[in-house]
Write a protein that binds this DNA or RNA. Structure first.
Lengths: 225, 225
DNA sequence: GTCTATATAATGATAGAC
DNA sequence: GTCTATCATTATATAGAC
């Protein structure tokens, strides 16, 4: 996590950052709170500069968004080895929220996933690849049950882990964009049912699974006679 | 499902509907495809009327949105008894997509959940209440395992079921707003991993669950000494 | 580098003719 | 009921002074 702390310039007061960096950080915050409809004016106000200067430095609002995307993605990349080797995708995001300093980043990620676009697709694709690798290791170590289709399971578990957070914030919208508090609330509410589900499953018998497997096999043999 | 068919005016060609109804249906489609940033002009064009007429009939874009919300919610209410008594929350949405006619409605729901607001909160709250009731019945019937916290589990399973769909459409954005195809793809991709998870769980032992229960109990006794 | 002032484009909403 | 034409607002982006 050391690299993450450096990325966030911990110990450096905002006044010491270049205006460009202050604008970028302000944009990450506003985008994270309001979504990408946040105006250049609002970002400029938060950074303490004029709207014109924002465009002067980044060319356009879209270019500023792209810079924010890259910035967030770079921060995540530097931290991901730590996060993924010992956690599920949900914990991956929740871990950021444990440190309130990173709450703006979490807000930005949530907004990016809600809004769609390149960053959302990139994030999901990378999380899925990492999850597949992590799950394979855990299966080999005997901690996770094997799956009949490991790639499909990795994608599904990422969708479930990320999607549950998205749905939760729709149910309990963060106050003043405080994603730290929101995700602590999520962890509090979902830990027990998640662990129950992951440990014990939900259904009392395997009839539905068996029915599906039979159905799938007959479909397959029909397509390849 | 008969009432649903009536609501959608099946067998009635668009030209037979009043302009007000055509505008509302066009708005549901455009909102479902583009999100709620869809312009009044785009909605008017899709309905084959002038922008002014849209405002004339509904007063404002927000009022039109509210009418769409009510319309969608009413259609769902008429169908929900059918859908919830025999399906998980995910199936509830997927079932709509089985009939391409209802794809615009699914698109609208997805956009509403992504955008947040009253309809999203209302939908989630009602799905949760219904899921809790459904789960209780299934537990009583011996089909679903009991939970240590049934209310928390119902909320979590709704978040998981809905959220997985939201995340999936971010990964595979619908082409031309075809949510029918998108959700068939979702069902195809997630059926096996979902059934594995619900039938067998994910973890090979109960140590994480037990650790959490111990932690939770000590927290409780500390707060109530 | 930074600001003020302004151009330009799009949008929601209004007014009045038909 | 429906349209055309227009207004008012807001947003991004530009131009030029300091």
């Amino acid at each position: 996590m050391v690299s993450l702390l450096n990325m966030r310039s911990v110990g450096v007061v905002p006044e010491d950052l270049t205006a460009r960096a202050r604008i970028r950080d302000a944009a990450v915050r506003r985008f994270g709170i309001e979504g990408f409809g946040a105006s250049v004016r609002a970002i400029a106000a938060e950074a303490g500069v004029s709207p014109g200067l924002v465009i002067h430095h980044f060319g356009s609002k879209d270019a500023l968004r792209a810079v924010c995307d890259e910035h967030v993605l770079r921060v995540i990349r530097e931290a991901e080895t730590d996060a993924f080797t010992s956690a599920t995708p949900t914990d991956f995001i929740a871990r950021f929220a444990e440190i309130d300093e990173y709450a703006p980043l979490v807000g930005y990620l949530v907004q990016a996933l809600l809004a769609g676009g390149d960053l959302a697709a990139t994030l999901l694709a990378r999380m899925t690849a990492d999850a597949e690798s992590y799950l394979a290791d855990a299966v080999a170590a005997g901690r996770i049950r094997p799956s009949r289709d490991p790639a499909a399971r990795a994608a599904f578990l990422v969708d479930v882990g990320i999607g549950a957070v998205l749905s939760f914030v729709r149910r309990h919208p963060p106050v003043d964009g405080d994603y730290g508090a929101a995700l602590r609330a999520y962890a509090e509410a979902s830990s027990l049912p998640a662990l129950e589900l992951y440990t014990e499953g939900l259904l009392t018998d395997a009839s539905m699974l068996e029915a599906y497997l039979t159905y799938r096999d007959t479909e397959e043999s029909r397509n390849q006679p």
